[in-house]
Design a protein around this nucleic acid. Structure first.
Lengths: 339, 339
DNA sequence: TGAGTCGATGCAAGCGCTTTCATTAAAAAT
DNA sequence: ATTTTTAATGAAAGCGCTTGCATCGACTCA
């Protein structure tokens, strides 16, 4: 039915340019080895036919695809958006194409996506955080595919990672909260199972509280997936509990904004009646009223550095070097000092 | 240096299972054609070796990759997040892998990404909106790659699209604004160049105003890229203008939230001193105070339907069928009735 | 002027898979 | 008991590319 113009191949280009396929390949990949004049003719033929290389074939023959893969837990909220956008832009300027897929926070799906990207010849892969089944790491190593972790950094872990110390950052925020006189603290954490970032953030709080002499059993902690409505519901549950907290510390800004919203719906003044904190420093935290006290993470910086490092790994074959980025506590009107 | 376990191939599987490569291929792709017993042995060998098919090779031999590509203008704000997430989930349940890339609203980059996805064997491609250079459509058609447009729908355009009528939706919103007694209207539009959605939204407003007898030359309109800060700046500029508007209609929620924020910074009460409207109905619009009056778009529904339709096109080879989805005007506290 | 270089190109093997066609053994039909 | 059908498998070609090796003029150098 459809007029099926066959897809032009490298051989077609060779034929119309009057050279051998090898020369066409060289014109495309190592133009320095081809004479000026020949190059012209090949280019003309390429443009003429609308030729695009077949990456399947290229991958088979050369093992390189100029493609980097990234797997992020979700696209649904903006947590990763800014960083990934920066990652993509840098990659593009380095001549690589970024292919993204999302795992919906499901380790099985993530493992599947890793295989999918490997099967499709990704030269390198970006993953979020440390935790995943060992088999995934084994697979990557066996396949010799360079990978880099982001959005986390742990000094005691040898895997190459570019990110920040979630535990330490939250520890500091908690420090701040305590310094402001809060002693009645409740926590809304992201789901910690299979999520080392969420776990370390929670740990940052509990460790700090333990140092302060808190009995952790009495600290209300609710775990729930990152989602505005979940944050709202958890907040309400906490506020209906036996002892009303003076501050609710949330595992990220999405939960924090949810809490804030429900507070307003419940007629609770923030921060005079209850303080709320978040984590990540995404736009969401800036546009609500009052603005959310949070930990600002250098998303763009992280994306750029991750791109640079991953490409370096791919091109040099060297092992990845970890980099720790600083995060910054941003105190806004969503918290009040009781001191 | 690295112990370079060679990547297992289909031939390796065949050897350890004691069958021919052809049989392994059939076991993987058309298991019905293989005997029960053989299937077992092949499966065991696959698991044993940790075999993953090489999609490059598969693509060359079979022309199918079970991969769908999507190119979105940006990941940086959440406009496309929900829809794409839904698209991805549906695709996954249909057995396809989604590869996403983003064009930063640059037609050149988008064209490049289309080629990149085609080169990598995408079975089908999802694009946002109608407008792009003709050569892109020609390329897609020449290559015989099914494509579907989303986030827009125009009855008079034959290209397969699943989305909503941006012009009509904004026309209605404007209708509502007029019905509430506003006559001093200013507009903050997204960049219309190369963006038919932005253009049609703007057109929805101007057409409605023209019907009302407005002199369009006197209506203040600022065009700016979708970004909170741009929305804020544009708002300030409008409010400092000769005639202060009673309502500022924004091209999307991101701009609207920026406007809202700057209003608060300027000490202007919303809505009593100035009303603000958005478009899209993303979370951002719900979490600000007051909530943003906006046009709610069925993001998830759109993602699901787009996935279903694109897969149908890929598998049946049939031409795509367009679907128009309804959008809904959501009136919130960011607008006041002057009537 | 003949040997040695060098730049530009072509030849051909091979990357890992699918699929047509042929083959064989077993089951069904006569 | 013989022929026909059917089910299961294998052999081998070919998908579009890269790259090591060979070739071949045209130079350079003595």
């Amino acid at each position: 039915m459809t007029s099926h113009h066959a897809v032009p191949t490298l051989d077609d280009v060779a034929r119309t340019a009057g050279v051998s396929p090898a020369t066409v390949s060289r014109s495309l990949n190592t133009p320095a080895l081809v004479s000026r004049e020949t190059l012209q003719r090949v280019k003309a033929a390429v443009a003429d036919l609308g030729y695009t290389p077949n990456f399947g074939a290229r991958f088979m023959a050369a093992k390189r695809t100029m493609t980097i893969g990234a797997i992020i837990p979700t696209m649904e909220n903006a947590i990763f958006a800014k960083g990934i956008q920066a990652f993509q832009e840098r990659l593009h300027s380095l001549g690589y194409t970024l292919l993204i897929s999302s795992s919906s926070y499901d380790p099985e799906i993530e493992a599947e996506q890793v295989r999918a990207l490997a099967s499709r010849g990704a030269d390198g892969i970006l993953l979020i955080g440390y935790w995943r089944e060992e088999k995934v790491y084994e697979f990557l190593k066996q396949r010799n595919i360079p990978f880099l972790l982001a959005w986390a950094f742990a000094a005691n872990n040898a895997l190459p990672a570019i990110g920040f110390d979630n535990r330490a950052a939250m520890y500091q925020l908690c420090d701040k909260v305590l310094a402001m006189g809060h002693r009645n603290i409740a926590v809304i954490s992201g789901t910690t199972e299979g999520n080392d970032r969420a776990m370390n953030r929670l740990k940052g709080i509990t460790e700090r509280l333990k140092v302060e002499g808190f009995n952790l059993d009495t600290v209300p902690i609710i775990e729930t997936p990152y989602d505005i409505d979940n944050g709202a519901n958890a907040f309400e549950e906490l506020m209906r509990g036996p002892e009303r907290p003076s501050v609710v510390m949330c595992g990220n800004d999405v939960l924090g904004v949810g809490a804030l919203q429900r507070a307003q719906e419940m007629g609770l003044k923030v921060p005079s009646e209850v303080s709320i904190t978040g984590f990540d420093g995404i736009e969401l935290a800036r546009v609500v009223t009052p603005k959310l006290t949070t930990v600002r993470v250098p998303h763009s910086e992280m994306g750029h550095r991750a791109a640079d490092e991953l490409v370096r790994m791919v091109e040099s074959g060297e092992v990845g070097r970890s980099q720790e980025l600083a995060s910054e506590i941003v105190v806004e009107k969503s918290i009040i000092s009781l001191a």
